[in-house]
Design a protein around this nucleic acid. Structure first.
Lengths: 160, 160
DNA sequence: TTTTAGTTGACTAATCTACTCGGGAATAGG
DNA sequence: CCTATTCCCGAGTAGATTAGTCAACTAAAA
C-alpha cells in the first residue's frame, strides 16, 4: 500500500466520473479540463482502472468512461491498488532471508501496519467522497463566493 | 502525507531503538545489522529524526541514539513526517489557480482525505507497534502456544 | 592518543512520476 | 464510405525520489 499523488489523481478522476457520469459516459478530455490532469496521463490511469474492472469504456463519438460498479462498492483502496499496482517492501521480500535473527520484525510489522492502513482506505467508499464533494459544492454555491481563500477550516495544516 | 518505503524504514528503525534501547543508546551499526538497512542510509534518516526531536544522540564509544520522547507520545505520523518532509500535492498548490471552475474539488477533497489518513496514522503510537512486535516475538519463542500471550514475557526489555 | 560513533556534505545508479508523442482501432453521424 | 470523435497502446523522457556510497570531520571514552 503506497500513497502518492498518482493514486490521488486516480481517485480524483473517479470522483469526477461519478459526479458527471449520471447521463452518459464521461470523456477523459472533460475530466482533464475540470481536474487539470494531463489527458495522456489520464489515459494511462484509466487503462489500469479499466483492466481492474473499476470503469468501462465506450468508444467512438459520444463515448467515454463510466463506472463499472456502484459508488458504494468502490473503495479508495481499490482505486489506489489499481494504479499503484504491486509494491510490498518488506526487507525479506516475502519469506526466505530472515536468516539467523528470528526477530526480523520488518515483515510481520509492515504486514500489520499495511493491513491497518489498507483496512482504513477500504472503509472509505467512492460514494462517501462524492457525497462529501457534493456537500462542499453546495456550500460554495450557496455562499456565492468564488476563490478558495474563504475556507472556514484549514485542513491543509494537517497535510504538512 | 506520503507513504513510501522510506517512512517504513524510519518506523522500523525507531521500533528497533525502542526495543533495544532500554539500557543505553543503540548504535546505528546495530540497527543496520538487525534490520538490514544500510548504515549510511540510516545516518541520513536519523539526522532528520534528530532534527525533528524524535531521537537524541550520544557521541563517542558507548554512544548511539535513544528516543527523545516516550513511545506513547510518538506516532507513526510523526516519524513519517520527519523523514518525508513537505509534500502536499493538491493541484492548485494551496490556493490560487483554481481559476474559473469554482468546483476545483481537488483541494478540499485531498485536504479531507489527507486529514483522515493523517489522523489515523497519528493514532498509531510507537508504543503500540513495539507491544505488537513483542507479542509476535513471544509467539515465535513460545512456538505452538497461541493466544494473547497472557504472561508478559519480555526478553530483555524491562519496558517500564 | 586511539577508537568509537555521530555529523555533514557531495555524489550516484536505479527507479518512479508525470508527463508527451505518435500511431492505432472502434464507432456514430453525415 | 468518410470523417470526426474517442478510447487504446507503446515508446520515450525530464525531473524528482530512493537508496544508497564515500570521504572527511567532530566529540567523547578508554
Amino acid at each position: 500500500m503506497r500513497l502518492t499523488t498518482k493514486g490521488r489523481f486516480a481517485v480524483t478522476a473517479m470522483i469526477d466520473v461519478a459526479l458527471y457520469g449520471t447521463n452518459g459516459p464521461v470523456t477523459l478530455a472533460a475530466v482533464s479540463e475540470r481536474q487539470k490532469i494531463s489527458l495522456s496521463y489520464l489515459e494511462q490511469l484509466f487503462g489500469k482502472l479499466r483492466r481492474h474492472g473499476l470503469v468501462e469504456s465506450v468508444r467512438g463519438p459520444g463515448g467515454g468512461y463510466h463506472l463499472a460498479r456502484g459508488t458504494e462498492t468502490v473503495s479508495v483502496a481499490d482505486i489506489i491498488l489499481a494504479v499503484d499496482e504491486p509494491i510490498d517492501a518488506t526487507q525479506c521480500g516475502g519469506a526466505e532471508n530472515c536468516h539467523d535473527d528470528r526477530r526480523c520484525m520488518t515483515h510481520e510489522l509492515w504486514a500489520g501496519l499495511n493491513e491497518h492502513i489498507f483496512t482504513f482506505l477500504r472503509s472509505v467508499t467512492l460514494a462517501e467522497l462524492v457525497r462529501q464533494q457534493q456537500q462542499k459544492a453546495d456550500v460554495v454555491v450557496l455562499k456565492d463566493h468564488r476563490g478558495p481563500a474563504a475556507a472556514p477550516r484549514t485542513p491543509e495544516s494537517a497535510a504538512r
